[in-house]
């Protein structure tokens, strides 16, 4: 049984379709990320799932139970959903322990206390039970929020851009921690983000959203290797389009020479374009090289060179430990990779 099924979901605001005929399944114990630019309808989708707003059409069902439609609309408080908000929404008038205990339905006092202790233990905030939210750091508040959302064992956890207020240095540590906690607790989760790095690190599957629709769903590797549209390809990383001709199922011909694809080309058309990211191209010192370096950026583990060759400007990534000799001629080569070939 699916943890969550969304079928043909639509929501309109001021006559405009914010969510448009959206369909998505989430498996049990799976973390799915709704990934997209702001305004693509991902947060609205989350609100519809939570029951904070009613869909215009389509259905939501959680663990096989319909949340709207013929059997009536189930209000948010009856859906047993956990939610983490972007600003955490911790109750400022309650202590950490009271916040965590807020959603518990257990009547027995000692059972409540032990569940709260267990949750605080899980998020490593044992000593903070009596503190108030404003006495905690951002990361600590975040951990209280996750403890609170998981304490009452929700059927589904919703996370609305939960990491956007966290410092970059600790963000990925925290993402790992929280992913571990969610997996530990065996909850399904839907996670909304606009950052692909967060999504890659946190989710099992990504659903890339565009204009209220899901452009493509899949694990990160599939999305990278077989984007169904230019939009998906572009969203996952910056690059340029180069005209290309199909040679056979595993290679294309470009003005920089033949390019081998590590996977079978998805597109059967003879003519089209390939999408090249900096990582797909290499530079080397070579006597016949005609590449002109415009500038270089040092990125720690790599250099990004901006170059022009044969009237084409493009960016190339180059490992930092084998620097190029810029005084000598340089040539360009395209590596064999999972080629994104579009018509």
């Amino acid at each position: 049984m699916h943890s969550l099924v969304l079928e043909n979901l639509s929501y309109r605001y001021d006559g405009e379709a914010v969510v448009n005929n959206l369909t998505l399944n989430v498996e049990q114990n799976e973390i799915v990320c709704l990934l997209g630019a702001s305004g693509c309808g991902k947060t609205t989708t989350l609100k519809v799932i939570a029951g904070l707003i009613e869909p215009f059409q389509g259905s939501v069902s959680i663990l096989g139970k319909a949340m709207n439609g013929a059997s009536g609309f189930i209000p948010p408080q009856k859906r047993n959903i956990g939610m983490m908000f972007q600003d955490y929404a911790l109750f400022p008038h309650l202590t950490v322990a009271q916040n965590v205990a807020f959603g518990l339905t257990i009547k027995d006092k000692s059972a409540r206390e032990s569940r709260v202790a267990e949750m605080l233990n899980l998020v490593q905030l044992q000593g903070y039970a009596a503190r108030f939210p404003h006495e905690l750091s951002g990361g600590q508040q975040q951990r209280v929020a996750i403890a609170r959302a998981l304490a009452y064992k929700p059927n589904l956890l919703l996370l609305d851009e939960p990491f956007s207020n966290i410092d970059a240095q600790v963000r990925f540590q925290l993402i790992n921690d929280i992913r571990r906690i969610i997996k530990d607790q065996q909850v399904s989760a839907i996670f909304v983000s606009h950052s692909k790095e967060e999504a890659f690190a946190f989710a099992d599957r990504l659903a890339i959203m565009d204009k209220g629709k899901i452009a493509q769903v899949g694990d990160p590797k599939t999305l990278f290797q077989r984007p169904k549209s230019k939009m998906v390809a572009e969203f996952l990383g910056q690059g340029i389009y180069i005209p290309a001709q199909r040679v056979n199922g595993a290679s294309v011909e470009t003005k920089f020479g033949a390019v081998h694809s590590l996977v079978e080309l998805g597109n059967m058309d003879a003519k089209g374009e390939v999408y090249l990211r900096p990582q797909h191209i290499t530079l080397e010192n070579c006597a016949q090289g005609s590449v002109k370096i415009l500038n270089q950026r040092f990125m720690g583990t790599e250099y990004i060179y901006r170059v022009t060759v044969e009237g084409q400007e493009l960016e190339v990534s180059h490992p930092a430990h084998e620097p190029l000799d810029l005084t000598k001629p340089i040539s360009l080569k395209i590596k064999a990779h999972a080629v994104n070939f579009f018509s």
Binding site: L52, Q77, N80, I81, G82, F85, A89, G103, A149, Y152
Partner: peptide
């Protein structure tokens, strides 16, 4: 508003 929304999601009645 947001906090009441949070409370509602945690199963609290109005």
């Amino acid at each position: 508003f947001k906090l009441v929304q949070a409370s509602q999601l945690m199963g609290k009645s109005p």
